[in-house]
């Protein structure tokens, strides 16, 4: 177990070392990664500048929601979401064999090889944004914060299941079909409070495709509002991860019988 953690950290450092070989380009890409994510907050700012905004949410509360979303998304993209684009490249070059000849769990190896040094900017940017928002929110309790963080961890789990499904899709169908855009479309839902959605959408995104656990639920927990949603979504995430793992490993098995 410790050797696995050490290996993951080593891979992360190697990927960052890679990018430092072209320092200027790396720095610009970090900045642009972060700036691109500001669409949501800018949109929110414009809405609140021109109107009272969303019922029951102040500007800073929505900003916190979006900051949390960015933090969880950034962490996920940095750690393992790379396996989605990496699946595409690896397939094109027929290099998955290189992963299979290492004496390690192939999913773990693949994750290590796909660390994305660019998305560290999203992660850190998200943290800063969240911090900035929290400073403007009066009533934040420690227990609320802890529950929020637990919910965020489940949010990471949600992204992990998505990564597994998308990666399996690419391996199976050998085409990318703009999965990135699909991912962004799904993510768009999670940038806003659950309360603005019609009932069926709210239930869908809590129980079946629990995008709300990424930010909407943690944000509410931090202001002290916790309800059953957090449990429902947590269970859903666990189910999705299990399904995702099963799908990924059976796709890989098919791959290794289908040949490169």
């Amino acid at each position: 177990m410790t050797s696995a953690i050490k290996l993951w950290i080593k891979s992360a450092l190697i990927h960052i070392a890679f990018r430092m070989a072209y320092r200027g380009e790396y720095f610009i890409s970090l900045v642009s990664m972060f700036v691109l994510e500001l669409v949501g907050p800018i949109f929110t700012y414009i809405i609140y500048y021109n109107s009272p905004g969303f019922a029951g949410w102040t500007f800073y509360q929505v900003l916190l929601l979006q900051g949390i979303f960015l933090t969880v998304k950034g962490f996920s993209f940095m750690s393992f979401m790379g396996i989605v684009w990496h699946s595409n490249i690896t397939l094109q070059r027929g290099e998955f064999d290189l992963t299979l000849i290492k004496p390690r769990n192939p999913l773990f190896m693949f994750i290590c090889q796909s660390f994305d040094a660019e998305d560290t900017a999203k992660f850190i940017g998200g943290l800063l944004l969240s911090l900035y928002a929290i400073l403007h929110i009066p009533a934040v309790s420690l227990s609320g914060l802890l529950i929020g963080i637990v919910a965020m961890i489940f949010g990471v789990g949600f992204f992990f299941s998505l990564a597994l499904f998308f990666s399996s899709f690419i391996f199976r169908f050998i085409r990318s079909m703009r999965v990135y855009d699909v991912l962004e479309a799904i993510a768009m839902v999670g940038y806003y409070p659950k309360s603005i959605y019609p009932r069926f959408a709210g239930t869908l995104f809590t129980a079946i495709l629990p995008i709300f656990i990424v930010a909407a639920i943690p944000a509410k927990a931090i202001f002290g509002e916790v309800d059953i949603d957090i449990l429902i979504s947590a269970v859903s995430v666990i189910v999705l991860i299990a399904l995702g793992l099963y799908t990924w490993f059976s796709t890989i098995k098919k791959y290794s019988s289908a040949g490169g």
């Binding site: 050797s3 080593k10 190697i14 070392a17 890679f18 070059r93 290492k102 004496p103």
Partner: peptide, 21 residues
């Protein structure tokens, strides 16, 4: 198909190999 890292020296890949194995 190369198992080394393109932009880094082979010695880095050797140490990575050590960790993996």
């Amino acid at each position: 198909k190369s198992q080394l890292f393109w932009d880094l020296p082979p010695i880095d890949a050797f140490y990575m190999h050590k960790s993996i194995f």
